[in-house]
Write a protein that binds this DNA or RNA. Structure first.
Length: 764
DNA sequence: GTTCTAGAAC
DNA sequence: GTTCTAGAAC
């Protein structure tokens, strides 16, 4: 107990590296060499089963036991994929430990040569087999990210780095903690890139080269308050440095040396915010920068002694350079409004910036995830932000914002001193996202302006409430009447609603349920949706006429969510920057499936308007079908060159969920977290999945495909696609298919229905 | 197509 | 108490 009072905190170090990268040596060196009194336990999957290889579950149990006994843990397993690490991160944070990643990024050939040559290895991985395994594993490696929940990530690129890391952990006393952030990463690429999303346009701000004058960038020191036990390691932390404009340096120096009370004060009057709508929502950067500068300038005129910081991850951020130029032109005081390159969730620990309030580019449901700033903030703030948000609002309308006070338990509050998050929803110019404005910049600009105004006004309310509290605590408040700002806070109020806004509960935007929000959007923005996207407002028959589809009459109606592939097929040029698109031709687009149901799962999407599904396919479409098939085979062959262990099927869903004819090319491992339910499984492993070769043959013979395929097969029992054994639920099925080595049913071995590296492939 | 969640199954 | 599914909403 005494130790807890001194602030002792256990650490979970998740080692990340392939066989031969030195994980075990690292773990042993830390366990055996700890000089500072911290008790380390090595949890090694290769030996956890009475000296033999065990399971991840055993490792989790051992780690949990150790933490509960007040020991720190080294997780000695490969942990190369995010999913493999996630449970350990979760365990650590649940048990209030610091969770670190140490990524052993030695060159592949070094790992292979070590793995090949070693004898008597714990995991029995040695000899020639090791080379194959290491190579395969490295292909799947996902670099650890702070957004996964690590508070600290160390990348070791050579033995020297590893030695430094070992020393660091050896010297870590029971009450010491290491600074947060990413250390030693080779690339200068920002660490918090968003989770890859379907067709998410690469953030223009991080791709484009700044056309503006080159910023004078200066590294700033981390804040003094952050205990940094080892200076040399701190320096390593600036492999992806937080940088600010040179002109601010004086300001920062002041901040660092200010008295504690002043220090807090600066922070409590600072709002850091990301650019709204310019990343995933694809709002034009030039227009957005005008609006940011304009709304910020207006706001600063109304309020003195308040500070706004526009934050973006990328050094090459175009939105930052545009805003900087335009702010300079307007002669806005650069001490009160400036731009900052860095991670908005680490402004204090990595940038030394004091900032109590941060803006979040939220989604309308106010849910975590989605990538980008939203994911980063929710990850950094922990679950308590979700709960706190839920208490404040269910949903957000474009152009509005909502203040969420951060609970004191939130890591973002504890580590960074953030007291409030303001969720903002801006206008959307991305057809793949809700409330798409169809390039209507009149409306979009208005909404973006409203969004920033709402953000700033809410921020002002927080500051005023804080000032009011400060003053009443110090007895400086002159009168309680109306609660307007006392003069000594230098806050100026112009509008007549000032006193209204002082009542905190009135400051929030109207809180609506999801349903109300939906209706509200429809009323307020009748032109908001693409007609073809609106499923409820327009009868489906009408839509079919509008859709140039007079010649085709099908009973199928498509929900708004089912339009993505159609939208892509009709306008591929809009998504040309997406990493998900593998190939584009006049006839088809090859796309990585957003939610792959196997290691490799891509779609060949026809671009022919009116061809929604197999039901629409006629003889005249045969050449197209054959070319789509060939494209699929070509990609399958490419994947087989990369991994000869895969096997592929090419086929269509009898009744697809997404509009626009698309051919699935899917590897038969079905090893994917996105494969979650019976429908997923049965849609690829029963008669619901129509092999491309059979579809082509059937059209050749009959002129159309049979329409009798029943969706009932989707509800059938779960059977292994190889040995046909039945399984009670998805998790058990997945465990089975991971080990089933039976050959495929005989009909799949005919007519090239199954493509593998060992088979001769005839192109249809 | 996914997400969310109540309640069934274990 | 936890895991898992199925149905509704989007």
């Amino acid at each position: 107990m005494k130790e807890e009072e001194r602030g002792r905190k256990e650490v979970v170090v998740v080692l990340v590296g392939p066989p031969g990268s030195g994980k075990s040596s690292f773990a042993e060196a830390v366990v055996g060499g700890s000089t500072a009194g911290r008790h380390w336990v090595r949890v090694c999957q290769d030996t956890i089963g009475n000296g033999k290889a065990g399971t991840k579950i055993q490792c989790l149990k051992a780690a949990s036991d150790a933490l509960k006994e007040g020991k720190s843990v080294l997780v000695d397993r490969c942990n190369l994929e995010r999913e493999q690490r996630a449970d350990f991160v979760k365990l650590g944070s649940t048990l209030h430990a610091d969770v670190h990643a140490v990524s052993l990024d030695l060159p592949a050939k070094v790992c292979i040569s070590r793995a090949v040559s070693r004898k008597g290895h714990d995991g029995n991985l040695q000899g020639g087999k090791a080379a194959l395994v290491v190579n395969r594993m490295l292909q799947k490696k996902e670099t650890p990210l702070l957004t996964e929940g690590f508070s600290r990530i160390m990348c070791c690129n050579d033995d020297g780095d590893i030695k430094k890391a070992v020393d660091l952990y050896n010297d870590l006393g029971p009450s010491d903690s290491l600074p947060s952030g990413v250390f030693g990463q080779k690339s200068k690429r920002p660490v918090q890139v968003g989770i890859m999303k379907f067709l998410k346009k690469a953030d223009a701000s991080s791709v484009e080269t700044s056309s503006g004058p080159k910023l004078a960038l200066t590294e700033i020191k981390p804040a003094q308050q952050n205990p940094l036990p080892k200076q040399e390691n701190v320096e390593a932390g600036f492999a992806c440095p937080m940088e600010v404009e040179k002109g601010l340096n004086d300001k920062m120096e002041n901040e660092e040396h200010a008295k504690e009370s002043d220090y807090c004060d600066v922070g409590s009057r600072t709002l850091a915010f990301p650019s709204i709508s310019t990343a995933d929502f694809q709002f034009d950067l030039d227009r957005a920068s005008d609006i940011i500068v304009d709304t910020a300038a207006n706001f600063l005129q109304k309020f003195d002694n308040i500070r706004l910081i526009l934050v973006d991850l990328s050094e090459k951020s175009r939105i930052l350079s545009l805003v900087k130029q335009k702010a300079a032109k307007k002669s806005i005081d650069s001490n009160r409004f400036f731009t900052c390159v860095g991670d908005i969730t680490q402004l204090h620990t990595r940038g030394g910036l004091q900032c109590s309030v941060i803006g979040n580019a939220a989604n309308w449901r106010l849910k975590p995830g989605g990538g980008g700033v939203n994911a980063a903030i929710y990850n950094a703030a922990g679950e308590s932000l979700q709960h706190a948000t839920k208490k404040c609002a269910d949903a957000l309308r474009p152009g509005t914002s909502v203040v969420v006070p951060l609970p004191s338990t939130s890591p973002l509050r504890q580590r960074e001193g953030v007291t409030h998050v303001i969720h903002v929803l801006g206008p959307n110019m991305n057809p793949m996202r809700p409330d798409y404005l169809k390039n209507d910049y009149t409306r979009g600009s208005k909404i973006l302006r409203e969004a920033y105004n709402s953000l700033f006004e809410n921020f002002a309310s927080i500051v005023q409430s804080y000032m009011g509290k400060q003053n009443s605590e110090s007895g400086a408040e002159k009168s309680a009447s109306g609660g307007t700002s006392p003069n000594d806070t230098k806050m100026k109020r112009e509008d007549s609603h000032g006193s209204e806004r002082m009542k905190k509960h009135k400051l929030f935007q109207p809180i609506m349920t999801a349903k109300q929000q939906h209706e509200c959007t429809k009323v307020n923005a009748p032109n908001c949706h693409d007609d073809a996207m609106t499923s409820s407002a327009v009868p489906s028959q009408t839509r079919q006429v509008d859709n140039k589809r007079n010649d085709v009459v099908t009973s199928k109606t498509w929900g708004s969510w089912a339009q993505s592939l159609y939208e892509l097929a009709m306008n591929p040029e809009k998504y040309k920057n997406s990493d998900s698109i593998l190939e584009t031709s006049d006839e088809y687009i090859v796309l990585k499936d957003l939610y792959p149901k196997a290691k490799r799962h891509i779609l060949v999407i026809s671009r022919m308007d009116g061809l929604d599904s197999l039901a629409d396919v006629k003889k005249e479409h045969l050449p197209l079908l054959r070319r789509m098939h060939s494209a699929g085979v070509k990609w399958a062959q490419k994947f087989l060159e990369e991994d000869a262990a895969l096997e592929f099927r090419l086929g269509y869903h009898s009744v697809p969920s997404m509009r626009q004819l698309h051919l699935h090319i899917i590897s038969q491992d079905f090893n994917s977290a996105s494969l979650k339910n019976k429908k997923h499984w049965n849609s690829f492993t029963t008669s619901f999945f129509r092999d491309s070769v059979d579809v082509i043959e059937e059209i050749e013979q009959n002129g159309s495909t049979t329409t009798s395929t029943d969706e009932k097969v989707l509800a059938m029992e779960l059977r292994c696609h190889r040995c046909r054994s039945a399984h009670p639920n998805i998790p058990k099925l997945k465990s089975h298919i991971a080990i089933c080595k039976s050959s495929f049913p005989s009909h799949l071995l005919q007519k090239n229905r199954l493509l593998s590296s060992t088979m001769h492939m005839d192109r249809t």
